[in-house]
């Protein structure tokens, strides 16, 4: 069988295929409605749902709930009849599978292990994702776009969220499921997995690019300057920009919100930055300290 068909029809991977189909469908639907409403707002028309009245819950809503529940039940029953849940060999602590993959919804985080040490990829970044998600309503002070699909009115919020949701979460999951083979090496879906394959990929540290030993004191200082420079510069640069371009917004936004938002944002952006450094420039660590490496 074609390896691509083989990999997407593995019982547990069917869920990922269903996820990709459902997410794509609803993404198109959401943005289609958003652009429709944008057009209405542009010409001063009421958006979808603005002049709606009330209907009785019984029966319109109860009816639709029942129909959806039945449809879901039919769908899951069908899925369960057609595909059997796999059961692998009994657990064997002495036989490590290669690759050993986390559950599919955590594969984005496992993918981050290529770019960050476990304390960052497995603990700090997931915690910040949760904190960051919960912070969204308190840092987004834009009152527009509440209760209807829209894009123009809240471009920054939607682009930032979409980047995190589609690229850093869903795309990394798809990569982890379909494109990672033995040794967590990259395999195209049409390639056979080769357990003997070794990729010699010498990585280096940031300071070694400039001929400085990354474990020496000058290397430590250079790394400290770059990492802290990114963090401090990332905090100051948007401030300068906003102060110049949108001073009223900055005033209304407030210092605490600014610090929280910017910290979360530069943390999020550090992920694609580190990916490029690792994949394009083969840089493993930027800053090596006796306690942790970044």
């Amino acid at each position: 069988m074609n390896p691509f068909i083989e990999i997407i029809t593995q019982p547990d991977n069917i869920a990922i295929v269903i996820m990709v189909i459902l997410v794509s469908f609803f993404t198109v639907w959401a943005f289609q409605q958003a652009f429709q409403n944008d057009k209405l707002i542009a010409v001063g028309q009421p958006v979808d749902g603005e002049n709606e009245g009330l209907v009785d819950t019984f029966k319109p809503l109860v009816r639709i709930e029942l129909i959806i529940a039945l449809a879901v039940m039919v769908f899951l029953t069908f899925w369960s009849i057609v595909v059997d849940a796999p059961l692998e060999e009994i657990a064997n602590p002495t036989l490590t599978p290669n690759p050993a993959k986390a559950p599919w919804y955590f594969l984005g985080l496992q993918e981050l292990l290529v770019y960050f040490d476990p304390w960052l990829a497995g603990v700090v970044l997931p915690s910040l994702i949760i904190v960051g998600l919960m912070a969204i309503p308190y840092i987004d002070i834009n009152p527009k776009g509440n209760g209807y699909y829209s894009f123009e009115e809240r471009k920054f919020a939607i682009i930032t969220f979409s980047f995190g949701f589609f690229i850093l979460w869903l795309l990394l999951i798809v990569i982890g499921v379909f494109f990672r083979g033995p040794g967590w090496l990259w395999y195209w879906p049409w390639q056979e997995w080769d357990h003997a394959r070794v990729v010699f990929e010498p990585t280096r540290d940031f300071s070694t690019v400039f001929g400085i030993d990354s474990r020496s004191l000058p290397g430590f200082i250079l790394g400290a300057i770059v990492v802290n420079g990114y963090l401090i510069g990332g905090m100051i640069a948007p401030y300068k920009y906003l102060k110049k371009k949108m001073p009223e917004f900055l005033k209304e936004f407030g210092m605490i919100r600014y610090i929280v938002t910017t910290s979360l944002f530069i943390t999020m952006m550090s992920i694609p930055i580190k990916m490029v450094l690792r994949l394009v420039f083969l840089i493993k660590y930027i800053w090596i300290t006796p306690w942790f490496n970044v």
Binding site: L22, V23, F26, T27, A34, N142, G147, I158, F161
Partner: peptide, 16 residues
Amino acid sequence: VMIHMFRVFMTGSYKA
């Protein structure tokens, strides 16, 4: 549940 979160975000329903 992930699609639900996406919907709530896209309609700005997390706002006050």
